[in-house]
Design a protein around this nucleic acid. Structure first.
Ligand code: DGT
Ligand code: MN
Ligand code: MN
Length: 482
DNA sequence: TCACGAGGCCAC
DNA sequence: AAACGTGGCCTCGTGA
């Protein structure tokens, strides 16, 4: 501890700062602790004797500073990551209230439903087995019940896949299949959310305090762990039920602001694609447009589920999805998928050119970067085969996903400054960041007045031709935002 | 008892 | 599962 304090004073950096700087240099590492960083930056040496630690750490901090500035990463550090750090620390301290009784109730409800499904499955299988074991499940389906395997994909280790997509393909061949699909979903919600979440509730605060990881991704996004609050279920009846357990404090409400079609808007700005820019100038919704084209219906008839699927298609196509995957995801023929992609990039030819430009830059320089200079190195991009191809897709994705991350981080900083400047610390708190969405806890009495101001901050953060748009929703709990 | 890969699935 | 990408975390099976 003493040593750490000394390091702080001498280098003007603390351990967290060093980790973040190292992450800016090399964003794909698992680990940014001092041991592994020392090994990385002074390749031949390992940690020396304890009495040399201080000197070694100072050397490390110095080496990292030099590297940061040679890669021009100072800007992103000074303007984004450094001011963000205390904001994340405050968000951890704030936490979010979770209603234990609701969770417990849902847990029991899920358990009952799971038991019922379990028994029906055993009956149809005429034996009991562990449904959670896909090996045992595959044996029951394909040996005992003799279900047709001819259409089924194999996993990469050569076994028959039993994932939802494959099960759905054969769902009409036996009444056990739909039950297994339902079982899987409920079991997932129970084991991944309902069971563990109560454990994370802090006794003193009755709130969950996630860990916000500032060095957790290769693109600049945040991640959240213990528990991950960025993947709480949102779809369907159960998603809503679970989110309802996250409640605003008495006299407070949740305010959510989610950027509309964010990576598409960013892509239009970066590519200057005339059609895509025009679409956003006219406040069009490209996810909805894609849904209407795929389903052959009017945009007014597009359901939320259809729009969600179209979202996957839009980003999938942009980031290099193949025609085969497109056809299966969209539920269209291979021929139609090929045609859809062709027309997509014909319509958005400026986008296509931009993506190719990203690829060229990556091949030439060995890295890609965002508008703010956040970098991701791609040492294998020239190589033949699967890994080379994968890095090509990364090269197309990172400058866009990474810029989206830069943008929302800037918004967080501006919103935090706004809260401070207006002396609203007791009335407005940042609670969650979910990649392109901020959730705040705001005194109900002033929320109507605050919401549009925060919306403006988020929408004006970039000063671009293409409008950024943030959608406001408000509610007493996370499941009932309107 | 623990660590790890595989398979799987939740979110953006 | 796949020529979309970014994560975290669950269970199972296996091997120390
Ligand atoms: N590559 C990829 N990126 C995704 C996917 N889903 C979400 N994202 C990224 C791109 C989105 O712009 C961003 C935010 O997700 P949202 O669910 O908020 O979607 P988006 O903002 O596009 O539409 P929205 O108007 O908010 O419904 O996350 C996906 O399936 N693939
Ligand atoms: Mn969005
Ligand atoms: Mn979102």
């Amino acid at each position: 501890k003493e040593i750490i304090e000394e390091i702080k004073e001498l280098s003007q950096l603390n351990l967290e700062d060093i980790a973040i700087l190292a992450w800016l240099i090399d964003s794909e590492r698992k680990n940014y602790n001092l041991e592994s960083l020392t090994r990385f930056f002074f390749k031949e040496k390992t940690l020396s004797a304890p009495e040399d630690y201080l000197g070694q750490f100072l050397n490390l901090a110095e080496a990292i500073k030099i590297k940061v500035s040679s890669l021009s990463l100072d800007h992103i550090w000074e303007t984004i990551e450094k001011p963000l750090l205390p904001i994340l620390a405050q968000m951890e301290i704030s936490g979010i209230f979770v209603n234990k009784q609701i969770l417990k109730h849902l847990q029991e409800e899920a358990e009952k439903e799971i038991k019922v499904l379990e028994n029906k499955i055993y009956q149809l299988a005429q034996k009991t087995f562990n449904i959670n074991s896909y090996q045992q499940l595959a044996e029951v389906l394909f040996k005992d019940l003799q279900l047709d395997v001819s259409t089924l994909k194999k996993t990469r280790t050569g076994k028959f896949s039993t994932d939802v997509f494959e099960l759905t393909k054969i769902k009409d061949s036996h009444s056990i299949i739909p039950l297994i699909i339902d079982y899987r979903q409920l079991e997932k919600l129970k084991t991944a959310f309902l069971d563990p979440l109560p454990q994370f509730i802090n006794e003193k605060t009755q709130r969950i305090h996630t860990i916000w990881k500032q060095t957790g991704t290769a693109t600049g996004r945040l991640s959240s762990e213990a528990p991950n609050l960025q993947n709480i279920p949102s779809k369907g009846e159960w998603g809503k039920k679970i989110r309802k357990a996250f409640e605003a404090a008495p006299d407070f409400s949740f305010l959510s602001l989610d950027y509309s079609q964010i990576e598409l808007r960013i892509a239009s700005h970066l590519s200057l694609d005339p059609k895509m820019l025009a679409a956003f100038q006219e406040d069009k919704d490209i996810h909805t447009l894609t849904a209407s084209l795929i389903n052959n219906i009017e945009e007014e008839k597009v359901t939320p589920a259809m729009r969600q699927l179209a979202k996957i298609l839009n980003f999938g196509i942009i980031y290099g999805m193949g025609a085969k995957a497109l056809s299966e995801t969209a539920g269209i023929s291979l021929k139609e998928a090929r045609k859809f992609k062709e027309e997509y990039f014909h319509d958005f030819s400026g986008l296509k050119n931009y993506l190719e430009h990203s690829l060229e830059q990556a091949k030439k320089l060995g890295y890609v970067e965002t508008l703010f200079g956040r970098k991701r190195f791609l040492p294998l991009i020239g190589s033949l085969g699967q890994i080379g191809r994968q890095e090509e897709r990364i090269a197309m994705n990172m400058p866009i996903q990474g810029l989206a991350a830069d943008i929302i981080k800037l918004s967080m900083i501006k919103i935090s400054d706004f809260i401070k400047s207006q002396n609203l610390d007791d009335e407005v708190r940042l609670i969650l960041q979910i990649h392109d969405e901020l959730i705040l806890e705001v005194k109900s009495a002033i929320i109507k007045e605050i919401a549009p101001q925060l919306k403006v901050i988020m929408e004006q953060v970039m000063d671009w031709e293409v409008p950024l748009k943030a959608e406001i929703t408000i509610g007493k709990n996370w499941g009932e935002l309107e």
